[in-house]
Design a protein around this nucleic acid. Structure first.
Lengths: 211, 211
DNA sequence: GTCTATAATTTGATAGAC
DNA sequence: GTCTATCAAATTATAGAC
């Protein structure tokens, strides 16, 4: 029997399963959850949906796995940055923002889906298992946001940032960065490094005291 | 014969038509374009879809009208701000950002739909008429973004802002503000004024020279 | 102008052959 | 493990009564 969710809690992810996941991520990114049919995913795979339903119980389960993988990736990346307590808060925020912007531009498929993830009110009719996975995703998202809020609070304490509510301050930061998914499309000449640097500077300066 | 699109190019919008439009905006906002069925809209209207198809030829046409109305509203609001050339660029950007943030929080239904508007790759199979309306929407969006870019360029020339590519600089600004739609939900205690002020300060400071 | 069918299509998911 | 065939439900849109 094949695991239907949990992304390898039982061991390393199988190749077949990951292929389905990546194909799905691509299409979800382009069309969103509802507008993506299982046949669309199969077409990207160059197969029929029989293959997909061998690995996954439902379209929602695939979507949840894409979300989960993307958030796990982001969390893994931000932890080492948040833990560099020797770096001043503004430098830490700069590094975190740079990382997030870069992921948005490079890990396109999965992260983009995760950012659109809000679209999931569609899954209200979901079963208990799916609701749990959805809640786990929301929890991870909150945890990720909290890393940013904590850095902001540190910066305010250090007198580097204005005195703002940290949780609220994280919103325009992540908004400016997540929005990249809405307009950025990879192309030969596009300089990811420059954009990431400019956006990181933007959000750090956004918190600095006025004049 | 009833006009199928164009939002009153022939005269003032009829009441019945506007009722359909507003009901649709509400549901589109909550569920997105694809996940919204015409029956869902009818339910909000307290009628059946017969009424909707009397005013509109298709679901896509309704969606395009919602998008168009929202963008027309934003354009009307930003023009007077952009034309206040006596205000210094940073004050003008602050006012524009404040306006945009406020609209995101108050004109919820329509503006939110317009912001999600990206979801419209779904309409690739659309007819020529719909493609024209879609292009008109994209053009308005670009025009709106250009107002922000122009203010940024003014600010850079005045030495108030860093030397950034104006069009690119408009992205994190509108990203931080548009993202409000993703998390803000109206509630009794929520202070729209404070949030708008804080976010406007954030994006203006984001462009100021470092240190 | 609104409603009640209903046609035509799409889609999520399953069953069973190979 | 993948495919074909198919079911059942949902959904867009139309036709025609009132």
């Amino acid at each position: 029997m094949v695991m239907q969710s949990g992304l390898g809690r039982r061991g390393p992810a199988e190749a077949g399963r990951m292929e389905v996941l990546n194909a799905a991520a691509t299409v979800f990114m382009e069309r969103g959850f509802t507008a993506t049919s299982v046949d669309d995913i199969a077409e990207v795979l160059g197969s029929t949906k029989g293959r997909i339903y061998h690995y996954y119980r439902s379209k929602a389960d695939i979507f949840l796995d894409v979300l989960t993988l993307a958030m796990l990736d982001l969390l893994e990346r931000i932890r080492p940055i948040a833990e560099q307590r020797d770096l001043p808060p503004d430098a830490r925020l700069h590094a975190a923002a740079r990382m997030h912007a870069t992921v948005m531009m490079t890990q396109s498929a999965r992260s983009r889906v995760a950012v659109q993830g809000t679209e999931m009110h569609l899954m209200q009719e979901a079963g208990a298992k799916q609701r749990r996975a959805l809640q786990a995703f929301v929890d991870m998202r909150d945890e990720y946001e909290q890393y940013f809020a904590d850095i902001v609070a540190d910066g305010t304490r250090a007198g580097l940032f204005r005195d703002v509510a940290p949780r609220l301050a994280a919103k325009p930061i992540l908004g400016a960065l997540n929005w990249i998914n809405m307009w950025y499309r990879p192309r030969p000449g596009s300089d990811i490094e420059n954009i990431a640097e400019e956006f990181a500077t933007f959000v750090v300066n956004g918190l600095r005291p006025t004049g």
